[in-house]
């Protein structure tokens, strides 16, 4: 069981769906987590364990590492996380990665507070209120009916730009 550092402060019963793809074989694992409120923090009863950093060494930018988000929400989800490069995808924000960060990413895509659309671009935000600097967690991703989309471009704590508001 992986403990989350979520500081949502709200009771949540959410289904977190993540599919992680590892190795050259299509090893997949679907983790369905019931997020239970305990002592002011949400703790996944069963989550995608082993959230260690992904390895993109020698991988093509299009290589899919994982998929996140409810598949029940339509064709857009789950959205892929690809290796990408320094400008998009996992490599773009790998320096922020941790178990907690991945948990916030999952929750944001599964249970967003605000969703904005512009063409194939999606800005998905979840209010967290963890601290004055960590009010919102934001994920930017693209969609495409096929599988040509970049998927997750970035995931970040919202700063002063205010695009989540």
């Amino acid at each position: 069981m992986r403990k989350s550092d979520s500081r949502d402060g709200a009771g949540i019963a959410a289904k977190a769906v993540s599919v992680r793809v590892t190795g050259t074989r299509a090893l997949t694992r679907v983790a369905v987590a019931a997020l239970l409120l305990t002592g002011g923090g949400a703790v996944p009863a069963s989550a995608s364990s082993g959230a260690a950093a992904f390895n993109c060494t020698g991988r093509n930018p299009q290589h899919i590492l994982a998929r996140y988000g409810h598949s029940a929400d339509g064709a857009e989800y789950p959205v892929p996380l690809r290796c990408g490069n320094r400008r998009w995808g996992y490599k773009h924000f790998a320096h922020r990665w941790s178990n907690s960060f991945e948990s916030h990413l999952e929750r944001t895509l599964n249970d967003p507070t605000v969703q904005q659309r512009g063409g194939s671009t999606r800005v998905v935000c979840r209010r967290v209120n963890a601290s004055p600097e960590r009010q919102w967690f934001k994920v930017v991703h693209t969609t495409d009916p096929g599988d040509r989309n970049l998927g997750i471009i970035t995931a970040v704590w919202e700063g002063p730009s205010g695009t989540c508001l």
């Binding site: 400008r87 998009w88 194939s120």
Partner: peptide, 9 residues
């Protein structure tokens, strides 16, 4: 279209 999203982000 896809690259514009990268620019925005």
């Amino acid at each position: 279209d896809q690259w514009s999203a990268v620019v925005w982000a």
